[in-house]
Nucleic acid binder design. Structure first.
Lengths: 223, 223
DNA sequence: GTCTATATTCGGATAGAC
DNA sequence: GTCTATCCGAATATAGAC
C-alpha cells in the first residue's frame, strides 16, 4: 500500500468513526483497525491523534466553505451584487444538507463528522472554529445587504436559528423519524432544505412583513 | 462530611465539569478534585463513572420534564383541555432557557450539562434518551390537538426546529454574541424565549395562515 | 463511610527491525 | 515507509486500613 493510500485510508476511517462517536471515545486502535493499517502509521503521517483530527477537520470545512461561498457569490453576481435572502439561505443550508443526505457515504459521514467535531472541546478544534467564524460573518454581511432596513439583531438571530436547524437536522434526524412514526421523509433532500430555508426566512424577514399567502405557498413549503 | 454531602458535592462538581467538557474529557480525578472528596468516593456512591453520569442525567431531566409538563398541563386546563400553540411552545422552550440563563450557576450548568450529555454516545445515555422520547410525544400530541387541520408532518418538523433552536441557544450562545459584536443581548431571558417561540410558531402554523401583522407585533417580537 | 495505596487496564506514542 | 514490540502515562476500579 502506497503512502497516499495509507493516509487516505486513515482519514476515511477516522471520519466515519468520528461521525458516530465523540473524539475521546474513538481510539487510534479503532481507527487503524478500521483502516486496515498499522498503529504506528497515524503518528508517522499525522504526528498525533490531535493533529489527525485537526487536519481532517480543516480539510472538510475548507471544501464545505468553498461550496457555500461559491453559491453565495453566484447568487450575488446573478443579483447584480445583492443576493436575495432566499439565495443566501440556500447557499448556507444547501451544501451541508446535501452532503449529509448524499448517497455517497463518505460525504454523509463528512457532514456528521463536522457537526460533531465543531462542539468538541479538544484544543485543536477550538482554534480552527475561529475560521468558521469569519466564514459566517460573510453570510451575515450578505444578509444585512439583502435586508438593509431590518434590525441587525434580528439578522444575527435569524442566522443563529438557521445554523441551529442545520445542525439538529444533521445530528438528530433519527429522533425526528422515530418521533413522527416514519411520517417525516428524511430522504427528500430538497424538501428538507426548503423547510429550513422557509423557517429561517420567516425568522429573518419577520412574518409581519411577509408577502401574501398565495406567493408564500409557491416558495416550496408543502401543504 | 456526611454521606449525603459527599454525594451532593460529587454531583455538583460533575455537573459543572460536564457542562463545559465532554464525558470522556472529564476524568474522575477532575471531579473528585473539584468536589474536594476522595477518588474512591465516586465508586462507593455511584458504582462507576458511567453510573454517575446516568444518575445525574436522570435526576436533571426528571426535574426539567416535570417543570415542562406542569406548564403544559396548566395551559391545557386553562384552555379547557386544549392549550394554544403559544402556550405549548412556552412550556417546551421556557424551562430549559430559564435554567440556562438563570443567575443560579447550578441551574445554568444543569441546562448545559443536559444538552451536552444528550448527544453523548456513552451506553447509559443512549438508554435514557428514550424517556425523553415519550416526553416529546406528549408535546407532539398537544400540538396536534391545537392544530387539528395542520399537516402532521409539519407539526413534527416544527417541534424538531423548536428543539434545534433551544439546543443551539444553550450551547452556542457565545458564538452568537461574538458574531453580533455583542449586539445580541443574551441575558434577556424573556426576549430569547419569545424569539424562539415566535419562530417555532411560524414554522408550525405556517406563515401563510398567520394572523395580520398588527396582531403579530404584539406577540412579543422586537422591532 | 472515608481514605490511602495499589492493581489493572488501556491508550498514545516511539524505538528499531525490515 | 511500514510494521512489531514496547514504553510510559493516565485513568478506572478496588482492596484494605482506619
Amino acid at each position: 500500500m502506497s503512502s497516499d493510500q495509507t493516509k487516505a485510508a486513515i482519514l476515511t476511517a477516522a471520519e466515519k468513526l468520528w461521525s458516530e462517536r465523540s473524539f475521546g471515545e474513538v481510539t487510534m486502535r479503532d481507527i487503524v483497525s478500521a483502516a486496515g493499517v498499522n498503529l504506528a502509521a497515524v503518528n508517522y503521517h499525522f504526528g498525533s491523534k490531535d493533529e489527525l483530527l485537526a487536519e481532517l477537520f480543516v480539510s472538510r470545512t475548507t471544501v464545505l466553505n468553498r461550496e457555500r461561498f461559491a453559491e453565495l457569490k453566484a447568487a450575488e453576481e446573478a443579483g447584480g451584487g445583492r443576493a436575495s435572502v432566499d439565495a443566501i439561505l440556500h447557499a448556507l443550508v444547501g451544501p451541508p444538507l446535501r452532503w449529509c443526505l448524499s448517497p455517497d457515504l463518505q460525504r454523509s459521514a463528512a457532514a456528521r463528522f463536522m457537526t460533531r467535531a465543531s462542539v468538541e472541546t479538544v484544543p485543536p478544534i477550538k482554534k480552527i472554529v475561529d475560521r468558521e467564524f469569519r466564514h459566517l460573518q460573510r453570510f451575515a454581511t450578505a444578509l444585512r445587504t439583502a435586508l438593509p432596513h431590518r434590525n441587525e439583531v434580528d439578522i444575527y438571530w435569524g442566522l443563529h436559528f438557521a445554523l441551529a436547524m442545520i445542525r439538529q437536522t444533521i445530528t438528530d434526524s433519527e429522533r425526528l423519524r422515530k418521533l413522527s412514526g416514519g411520517l417525516c421523509d428524511l430522504n427528500d433532500t430538497d424538501d428538507i432544505i426548503r423547510r429550513i430555508v422557509a423557517v429561517a426566512k420567516d425568522a429573518l424577514v419577520g412574518a409581519a412583513s411577509a408577502p401574501p399567502a398565495v406567493v408564500r405557498a409557491t416558495a416550496g413549503r408543502k401543504s
